[in-house]
Design a protein around this nucleic acid. Sequence first.
DNA 1: TTGAATACTCAACTTAATTGAATTAAATCT
DNA 2: AGATTTAATTCAATTAAGTTGAGTATTCAA
Lengths: 399, 399
Amino acid sequence: MHRKTPLKIIGSNAERTRLHNRKVVLGHLRSHGKLGRAELARLTGLSTQAMSNIIAELESEALILAGERQTKGRGLPAVQYTLNPAGAVALGVEVRPNAILCALVNFLGDTLYTKRIHIESSAPAVVLPAVKTACDEALSSIGKNAPPVLGAGIVMPGPFGRVGLTGAGKAELVGWDDKDPQALFEDVLQVPVRVENDATAAAIAEQTTGSATDLQSFCFVYFGTGLGLGVISNGEILRGAFGNAGELGHVVVERGGRLCSCGNRGCLETYTSRMAAREFLQKRGKSAENQKDLSDLLAVNDPDLEKWICEAADPLAQAIGTLENLFDPEAVILGGAMPPELLERLIAKLNLIDATVSVRADRTLPRVVRGASGWMTAALGAAALIIHDTYIPSISKVA
Amino acid sequence: MHRKTPLKIIGSNAERTRLHNRKVVLGHLRSHGKLGRAELARLTGLSTQAMSNIIAELESEALILAGERQTKGRGLPAVQYTLNPAGAVALGVEVRPNAILCALVNFLGDTLYTKRIHIESSAPAVVLPAVKTACDEALSSIGKNAPPVLGAGIVMPGPFGRVGLTGAGKAELVGWDDKDPQALFEDVLQVPVRVENDATAAAIAEQTTGSATDLQSFCFVYFGTGLGLGVISNGEILRGAFGNAGELGHVVVERGGRLCSCGNRGCLETYTSRMAAREFLQKRGKSAENQKDLSDLLAVNDPDLEKWICEAADPLAQAIGTLENLFDPEAVILGGAMPPELLERLIAKLNLIDATVSVRADRTLPRVVRGASGWMTAALGAAALIIHDTYIPSISKVA
DNA sequence: TTGAATACTCAACTTAATTGAATTAAATCT
DNA sequence: AGATTTAATTCAATTAAGTTGAGTATTCAA
């Protein structure tokens, strides 16, 4: 993630073909739930015989389960296959400056275990062993004969590399600057590791288990430390050249507007983010340090919070218009470390621009939807990322 | 393009594997220029034997040429293969409300022929036969024994489908609303057809023959009728759910700013576009109907044009900051139907935001670069799109 | 009850990859 | 200069994983 890897386009052979086809099958099972061999063969464009072989292989590895035969009109009823929730697990870890959040999910992306651990320092020498311990604990929580671990997703605060935004008050990890986190974590955990930013991980979680399971293209606006954006476009994760795509918080929504910690004026983050809410309420003598504070204020219909929501909605609506015009998503999803009801209210207050490419006569979905929220969103997303990788084929490219 | 196709993830077999591998080989030959079999085998991760077979096949089809053996250190010098410029051709067509621009390019994307044809109506019944005639003429221009035609790229003004921006003064084609242009053109031309918007096509042209040949991720800001954006991210075209991604012209850069034909206020297009320039100069009694007018004004250092450039630069700089933060590209390229010198001046005047993820210590490229410009940019891009398809593998997905 | 439709299996075949040994030609060593 | 090493390439045999076609089982419908 940290440095630009001139992506390598590689060829395919029989072995890679099978790997690809396995992923294709798992992907279809995920999105359809239940399918017979013949139908899978039709969906994938493979012969029923090939499908039979692949299914047999997947079943022998316990990644899928044979169900009842299901009668649908004439002919021999097809044996219905489903993903086996207990077929595999994935780890997800969010590394923050002062804490490590660890999650374990099953093959469907459902949560099996979560834990928060405080850390004194974010230096690699502290973080790596702590993560190792946390992961071991997570795995032992599910008993002796655990299913295979597909890998570990790690979420670290971006942006990656030394960029213009660095040092701009972002909650950064110290001591990681010249390190390759992927290699370090892989070394410690002894499983395949992927490193992503929080917003992207959350977006993948949303696609795996949340409100975007049917969406191929969407934007996930993530309320984290700042304001992030995860973009899935036609099923692919948008990462950008250096893995820093989606820095929504520093998109300028008001020329010459509020001074941001990055040095610019008018960044969206200064209006619409947890930080912005906290400062707004602080000035009015109210504390909003965490989600509970916000929930409490919301529960009593605090007028100041209400005022903030109104103030935050306009810049956000403008930014959403920009996202719609630039990415043409099926929907924009709002989620992250904000109380769900607050997100709902914010969405209700949005005065969306009515002339973007997303305003279509044939829309069925609302333009803006609430997604998963909570502390663990990013860590669960990190784990979902690993699950995602087993569904999404990518023969042609190798980092 | 027009309707959302729930993209089909398909399996692979030996035949599709070979197709994939051929593309991979052609892609590497394109980006490296000259390569031997052994080196190609290493790059692609295939065996030298497999490479030998693929090379033999491609050579027999005249898509590649065997060159001299080239000595590099010890061992048997490798025969160097290159793409055969005359190995194949592709057609590109831009359909405008009042004209058809037709282009023919060779296998490297170099221009072989261009032509502009006036049309009285943009109705399918007029456009389709006119395009057919134009393409036939283009093909006959290169003589009798023409190489195989890979396909035709068609550029039509977006956005596609009935969206909020429709009817907002965009130069639209009438009579195409409920049609499937891809099928119609394929039927008439009898070659594979791809339909894209102008900005995306121009971006691909830039990657094939222009200043982005080494870039995997970039944003192409296209001065056309309005202001478009083509995004290539990690080698993939960003299209969005409905093919309407990149509607940069209607991104709001100034809240409550100038009234735009779309109904909103402060759209970038009202400040920075050909249209904006024309109106600005018109108010000052100067005509700027076409590129030549602008070139002439530029040549005499017209103070009004200079003033416009200054005025247009600020909103554009802000938008570029947004693109950098959202897409994290290697560079932003400016091109399209504007005189090259004007683009240069505009770039020189840009006061770029200095806190985006694109501001990196290790940058080698400038953040903003001038790209190809001229009338034919989009039509040539459409043709380049077809060439591009023969280089870029995409086993897994089918529209 | 019989025939058509559908799912699935078995066995033979095909494609396109891999593997290992042999061949050629240049660079380096003695 | 001649021997040795290195690298590119081909030849022949093998292998993985797909396809094809024939045959069986099960259900629906006439």
